[in-house]
Design a protein around this nucleic acid. Structure first.
Lengths: 237, 237
DNA sequence: CTAATTTGTGTCATTTTGCCACATTTAATA
DNA sequence: TATTAAATGTGGCAAAATGACACAAATTAG
């Protein structure tokens, strides 16, 4: 579906005034990053709309899969962003006019939008971002160093960052950010990055292993000094 | 706004395909109860729609206040319910036809609705439920003994019950269910009811008091045997 | 072969938790 | 009025979890 078709048929195909935005989070070089798309000189979250024929959850999974190429990605509801003046296109009009695309005041997506935001933890190396023909580029940005973003998308990313910090203490979901096989020092460093504080290595390791959700594999062969760590992966059922 | 006006003007006033449903929870006779409204022979959650001019949060607060008469009620986001076949009115048509009200296939609220659910903890004694002219009655139902409910509203109540059980361990919000002044034994019993398990009285009391969020008031005069408990209330800032 | 580095695991003091005891206060009862 | 039963506040202690650190093992660099 190209942009023209999108403009014309969207009104009938999608639920109006409702969007889905994804904070797709990855981990690289000891830093949390999120996937952003470029439109004009600003960036925005990957997102989309809900077909009238699909559930919100199906839409979320579809949007996420379309954008990342992942088959069964992790995702979790984040929050509703529903300010009364929440509209994209006022801000976008100048940019699209340059591209020769325009639409009327009464276009379906020229209206206010309530967005349902989700966050998703992914393995960056397994993620192959796909551009739509609206965006001119994508990039993984450090979540601590975000570019100029459209609308309230920066707030959404911050909400995701804070939420991840809370969730990581309750749920075991951080392995989604790592390759299938990983080491305890890696997991340790990841948790420290998320929480922004030092965690005692010894106790972290004991606690993780006591959860009994990881299975130990043969040691990893490293080429740096120091003892080789065991590899682990999530136990299969 | 009566029902006829609601049918006619709703399309222009409200965001389409989007509703808000409230699980309003109270505590009475050592049991959790929630406020339900009656339409026909089934019950449903108090809810409403979002004016195009107001934020989602404003709508939630408005709907909650309108229905309960409370000025600054507690509320917290629960979940999105967004099944693709989520429509009320197919089920309601037979009932409203009896009442002499009818509407066309293309009426704005004959469509699919995504609902944003919230839960709210209230003091039943301070709550004065207000009926709209759609519902024929209201009642507080034990959350463990719900009546037949419209659509997926029973699922929403169950989600709220489960969520409250999680939240109570993290946040301090249960005082919203009690009068302004309460005793530790009352709070203790409330937590046991929410969690569905026994909590050691001694440790519960120590833990609560160590939070340093309650201030102790003179003892309560009881007319039952046993020592009189101290009264407490939330410390003011 | 030695030094430096990384990882796995052990130890132990401190804190938190779970469980029970006991003293105090109050209405009911004899 | 004295006794009993019940409810409440608080203390104590063993067990478990936590935090901080120590040390041995494994590995590369020199």
């Amino acid at each position: 579906m190209d942009f023209k078709e999108f403009l014309e048929k969207g009104k009938d195909l999608f639920l109006p005034n409702l969007s889905v935005d994804m904070v797709i989070i990855g981990y690289e070089n000891n830093e949390l990053k999120c996937l952003l798309l470029q439109i004009g000189d600003k960036w925005l979250l990957p997102g989309g709309f809900i077909f009238r024929t699909e559930s919100v959850e199906e839409a979320t999974l579809r949007i996420l899969s379309e954008r990342t190429g992942l088959v069964d990605p992790h995702f979790k509801f984040l929050a509703v962003f529903g300010n009364s003046n929440r509209k994209f296109t006022e801000e976008w009009k100048p940019f699209f006019k340059e591209q020769g695309v325009s639409w009327g005041e009464d276009a379906w997506f020229n209206d206010r939008f309530v967005t349902l935001s989700y966050y998703s933890l992914v393995d960056i190396d397994k993620t192959k971002p796909v551009l739509s023909d609206m965006d001119t580029g994508f990039a993984w940005f450090k979540m601590d160093a975000l570019p100029e973003m459209w609308m309230d998308h920066r707030d959404i990313v911050h909400a995701a960052k804070n939420r991840l910090r809370e969730d990581v203490q309750q749920e075991h979901l951080t392995y989604n950010l790592l390759p299938e096989e990983f080491t305890m020092p890696q997991l340790h460093q990841l948790h420290q990055t998320i929480l922004g504080e030092e965690l005692d290595r010894s106790r972290f390791q004991k606690k993780m292993l006591s959860l009994d959700i990881f299975e130990r594999l043969p040691k990893l062969k490293k080429d740096t000094p120091g003892r080789n760590p065991y590899r682990y992966r999530i136990k299969r059922a």
